[in-house]
């Protein structure tokens, strides 16, 4: 059943009319036209759909939108400053050219932002563990690890 729901996304309140059982991913992509979170598996196995929920990196593909009405939701767009400047993690991914096709990039950046929030100077092993959910078929893992370290220095 459709409802008017209020969501707090990227620093703004949005009112949308959807079924509260709809996974957050589809609301973000289709109602709000946010391209960051991607559909990869719909099974919480790959991390393509990650968003920040109150600062925690979480897959959005099975998360009913009705369960996050009180949360602050952040996507790639929300990481960008008002002046258009990239977040240090985004900058580091560009600097290290840490992508091939880039389909996984959203999940990689979101997981890395959450990691660096908790741990300013993560070790290789900590980075690897924190990003374990994020599948990358193109094999850019070593560049992603470098990017996280570069970002850690800039933060």
């Amino acid at each position: 059943m459709k409802n008017n729901l209020k969501l707090h996304i990227n620093g703004r309140d949005h009112e949308i009319n959807v079924d509260p059982g709809t996974p957050l991913l589809y609301v973000l992509r289709n109602e709000l036209k946010l391209n960051g979170p991607k559909f990869g598996c719909g099974l919480q196995q790959c991390g393509a759909c990650m968003v920040l929920i109150d600062g925690e990196a979480r897959p959005s593909c099975r998360m009913p939108v009705g369960t996050v009405l009180k949360s602050k939701i952040t996507t790639l767009k929300g990481l960008i400053g008002n002046d258009g400047a990239l977040h240090p993690v985004q900058k580091a991914f560009v600097k290290e050219q840490a992508a091939q096709c880039g389909y996984c990039l959203n999940g990689m950046v979101i997981s890395s932002v959450a990691l660096l929030e908790k741990n300013k100077n993560p070790s290789d092993i900590e980075i690897r563990q924190e990003l374990a959910i994020n599948i990358c078929r193109c094999g850019v893992h070593s560049r992603v690890i470098k990017a996280v370290k570069t970002a850690a220095q800039d933060l």
Binding site: L34, N35, G36, K38, T75, L76, K77, I80, L86, Q90, F93, V94, Q97, A98, A99, G102, Y103, L105, N106, V109
Partner: peptide, 11 residues
């Protein structure tokens, strides 16, 4: 890659 990290349309 910058387009991608910004979450702009690409795919």
């Amino acid at each position: 890659i910058e387009t991608m990290v910004r979450g702009d349309q690409i795919f």
